[in-house]
Design a protein around this nucleic acid. Structure first.
Lengths: 155, 155
DNA sequence: GGTGAAATAAGGGTTAC
DNA sequence: GTAACCCTTATTTCACC
């Protein structure tokens, strides 16, 4: 399913479900002005096509005692394919790492990390992150305040 | 509801729902080993306490033609309270900005931005971002590859 | 529309402090 | 006693064909 139909109705469905996935199919069908059956069929197709990847509950980090969020930049010693593949593999095993992207430019990677407190952050970088082979330098920016934090892609 | 009980059962519920919020309450109750009614009651309390913030559908960015993701650093001309409040207000109006954090260190803000293509990126920075008053310098890092992209807080 | 399944509401039992 | 936790049953609502 590559070239799936992304008409206005499907975009509307995606906008609504990104905003609130707890809606019943009936309520969703009301909002887009189609019958429940037709609406459900469209949603199922969007799921099958992988356009809807996942349904998830978003939680309040602070209320779960995750008080430190930080971005960490990483530069590697060498940039061989092997070295980067090994790094990618190792970084996926760290649940504290919510995002990890390979970048264009001087810095090789950016990580978004979340931990309980500043002691845990120090412990994380020292015992879990920088023990990954191939890392040359890291540089951390602690988040002081989160102004925007959304998961909904603009459509 | 501040000091809400976060016992093992509630943590298990949160882990499961972060991983898959499309589960029925019955299936959820099976997995945690409680009755459906009791399970539902716990979930409702987690919602009321704001620990579960939102249910959302995560979509595949690439399949929706969002091909460019980038991190942008911003340094401000001045750091008066007024100046930052104005910036915060303006940045929330830009749907391309998925994350915006105030940072400790040299750089004042980091933004995560998603757009269709590189032309749109140039247009965004030139006509929508740098037109916000108070910005001194910006510096962009384009994402080459996404290694990790998760929303589930480790619990 | 109809059917079966699931969410929700109501009521009661058990244990710990 | 009472508060927290959990269960069962009954009713309503919804997904799905």
């Amino acid at each position: 399913m590559k070239g799936m139909q992304l008409d206005d109705t499907n975009l509307k469905i995606l906008r609504i479900l990104q905003d609130d996935a707890s809606l019943t199919n009936q309520e969703l069908s009301n909002r887009i002005g189609l019958s429940p059956a037709t609406t459900l069929e469209r949603v199922k197709k969007l799921e099958q096509a992988g356009i809807i990847r996942k349904y998830t509950a978003l939680v309040d980090e602070k209320k779960l005692n995750k008080h430190i969020k930080a971005y960490i930049f990483i530069t590697m010693k060498e940039h061989s394919n092997q070295s980067l593949i090994e790094f990618n593999k190792r970084i996926k095993d760290l649940p504290e790492v919510l995002e990890c992207c390979r970048l264009a430019g001087e810095k090789d990677y950016i990580l978004k990390v979340i931990v309980d407190n500043i002691e845990d952050f120090e412990l994380f970088t020292r015992t879990r992150l920088t023990t990954i082979p191939g890392i040359d330098k890291t540089s951390s920016s602690i988040v002081l305040a989160s102004i925007v934090d959304r998961t909904d892609i603009p459509l």
